[in-house]
Design a protein around this nucleic acid. Structure first.
Length: 258
DNA sequence: ATGGTAGGAAGCCTA
């Protein structure tokens, strides 16, 4: 069972890239971020034609997340618990087969310090609370998405230049580490511990050509999910295509449940 | 070198 995450930076602008990637990679489950459209403007038909069920939590202009799955999507929950006043569409969770899958678009948080950074840290605290609940419920789960956190300096092409950025600040890294310390496994890191294994390259300055990247898209696995982890990877092909997203798909492969 | 590029919305904001 292959579970992937892909920040598309507008699903409608990216539809050709997404269709091409789904057709070749054939992931079982996909978490999409930055749809930048409301539910009714999500291009469902061409994706359904490839055999996917779809659950969308959209928003006009900004944010927006979705789950795609070749298997049934059950018990969908949208919105991260813990703040009823949070209007931003950044979280969707559902059960697929035996796995609870959370698709997330963690706030960028720049500039730091400031209100946007405070929102990011509060959101991360709520994600930690949600993780605690999933563990208490005994769920086998994967939390996948654009975390907007570079866990270590090895995940940044130029750590000195990025040390004050919200993606690299100690407050952000500390909260990411809290998730790991709850027993979660970084799916990419488990198979690819080397530095400079990136998932995102800025549009500006020839970042892609120079491999000036960041590792900010992650799949975190519960202990029971990690016991089934057999492979992981980064698909760089979509980033090299025409009109690409600035992110590229990242995936884990889980052994089928018995 | 306080830029650069991309997307959506509306004549800027977010990333």
């Amino acid at each position: 069972m292959r579970i992937a995450t892909f920040n598309v930076n507008s699903i409608n602008a990216r539809l050709p890239r997404v269709i091409e990637w789904l057709s070749t990679a054939q992931p079982d489950v996909v978490c999409l971020q930055e749809l930048k459209c409301e539910d009714h403007k999500f291009p469902a038909e061409p994706i359904e034609d490839l055999g996917y069920n779809i659950s969308v939590h959209g928003q006009k202009t900004y944010n927006g997340v979705a789950l795609l799955s070749k298997r049934p999507i059950e018990d969908v929950m949208v919105g991260l618990p813990g703040d009823d006043g949070d209007e931003q569409a950044r979280y969707i969770e559902a059960t697929i087969d035996t796995v609870r899958v959370g698709g997330l678009y963690l706030p960028n948080g720049n500039p730091a310090p400031g209100p946007k950074f405070d929102y990011k840290l509060g959101w991360m605290d709520r994600l930690i609370d949600r993780t605690r609940q999933l563990l208490a419920d005994g769920e086998t789960f994967v939390l996948a998405g654009d975390y907007n956190v570079c866990p270590t300096d090895g995940d940044v092409y130029n750590p000195e230049g990025w040390q004050d950025d919200a993606l690299c600040r100690p407050e952000s890294r500390n909260r990411f580490r809290q998730l790991i310390n709850m027993g979660l496994t970084d799916g990419i890191r488990a198979f690819h511990p080397q530095p400079h294994f990136y998932t995102y390259w800025d549009y500006t300055g020839g970042a892609w050509q120079k491999d000036n990247g960041l590792r900010i898209d992650h799949l975190l696995l519960s202990p029971a999910a990690a016991d089934r982890l057999i492979a992981s990877g980064v698909d760089k092909d979509p980033r090299a295509g025409e009109r690409p997203s600035d992110h590229t798909p990242v995936w884990v492969e889980l052994q089928e449940s018995p």
